[in-house]
Amino acid sequence: MSAKHDPSRQPGDPETTGHEWDGIREFNNPLPAWWLWIFYATIVWALIYTILYPAWPMLTRATPGVLGYSTRAAVAAEIERFERTNEPWFQRLVDTELAEIEADPDLNRFARSAGAAVFRAHCSQCHGAGAAGVQASGFPNLRDDDWLWGGTIEEIHLTITHGIRNETDPDARWSQMPAFGELLEREEIESLVQYVRRISAQPHDAALAEAGAELFLENCASCHGEDGEGNQALGAPTLNDAIWLYGGSEEAIRHTITYSRWGVMPAFAARLREAEIRAVAAYVHQLGGGQ
């Protein structure tokens, strides 16, 4: 039944679709035609889009699109743009004396940001994302005020460049603690353990520690110092403080004396640019413990 033949329709009533269910009639409020045309336009747009951009999945890859756009290339271009922007800053880092970097607020801000990025990519695997180290594995905490090989920015830079006990770099700093398990008796090692506990102000067996004092002077003081104050030239840790590289418990100290330790850090001279090494040195130097 066509709407205009609808007998119940009053003048002024909207047209109906002619559908009626139990006396309920459906008004016909037609959409404007332009709405339909916009719908067709979006279909055409979608087709053009799939020709211009990567779209249709094929057997091995999607159609590349005639514009040659790829998200990978877009990211690469973006990275290149940032690298170009950063280049003058990196140059400034190389041209500035290490000790002067932190005096230049703008350069220092760049160095710390760039250094933080380098640290996350290259250093955090061992030293941790927060640079707090991992005591169980002997990876040093870089935030505290105790340094094995020196905490000035120059020495940090040297350590990063050449590494520690690193056989691939002749300039790497090197030292080796003997494994005293082959040189001393068990009781002697035990008294040394107690002596080290004493000088680090931890609970200890006073008699054994007293016996260890002499042994310490004979066997350990040449590197660790007469009072256990350590020696940064040799990378010999300070023993009379609260910071422990491998742990200050009796077991950990006993293990260290008996079997020695062998912490290695790789050289980054071949992996990073000089500017990046400087940036990360400035970052580490400003983590709270720099000297």
Binding site: G128, G130, N141, R143, D145, A201, G289
Partner: peptide
């Protein structure tokens, strides 16, 4: 607060937060 690490132990045994 810097939460990684929660605190840092210093040589003299004091505890520092950043």
């Amino acid at each position: 607060p810097i939460r990684n690490p929660l605190y840092v132990t210093l040589s003299d045994g004091s505890i520092r937060n950043d």
